[in-house]
Amino acid sequence: MLRIAGLDLVWPDGRKALDGVDLTVGAGEFLSIVGPSGCGKSTLLRIVAGLIPPSAGGLDWSDAPTSGGIGFVFQEPTLMPWAKVLDNVRLPLDLARVPRKEGGVRAMQQLERVGLADFSAAYPRELSGGMRMRVALARALVTRPRLLLLDEPFAALDEITRFKLNDDILALWREAGVTALFVTHSVFEAVYLSTRVAVMSARPGRIVADIAIDLQHHRQQSMRTEPAFGALCRRVSDARSAGMAGGMAGGEVAA
């Protein structure tokens, strides 16, 4: 679906955030990116979304997504506090001038999928952190995007909510048939969710390992304690440590 080749990003102040990132994203994959804080994961997602132009290299789409073809879930829920839950979810449709009635129906369906149909008339601040994140998910999926970009969406949540949302997002990913690019700090989360995990080095970010997760497709919480799961986590974790060490040897200190 997307080939990223030799992608560099240099900020205006001259600091390099990404240094020759090569990554292929296949259609239907659930690809996670793990890496130390400040290595450029968010930056990479924003480039893929077309929000920042790369300094060198580029994105090679097999067929470029149109407006609404990419769903983005940010590190924070990023909801409009003045709008009710339903109006938040339907925003992308409203912006695309989808007829009001159709937009309402589709937004409501999406809310049902994330289990928040009862809260359609609530305001964001009346929801818990986990519920807000689910609203953000519903909003990202409402345009039926082909590519879903998720930037550490669960980083601020407690572990139980996080596990629950992990399963929710897997279900949504399977149902919607969307390709997912998922950024996380957590090795366990990456292995649990993904079909593939890419590991980034410390700043400036590069892809230092690309590990296929050959676990059975239907993930369950019980898998978290299985030896195969543990072995994969170790491989990702080792690659991450190596990437960080490499970064430091290059004179960079991870933030």
Binding site: R46, S67, F72, Q75, M80, L91, D94, A96
Partner: peptide, 25 residues
């Protein structure tokens, strides 16, 4: 909120849509 601004851009919001739906509120 810069993230909301990005969200509007990502969804192809025009100048007036951004003004009325994002900046004014």
């Amino acid at each position: 909120d810069p993230n909301l601004r990005d969200l509007f851009r990502l969804n192809g919001a025009g100048r007036w849509q951004t003004l009325w739906r994002l900046q004014m509120p």
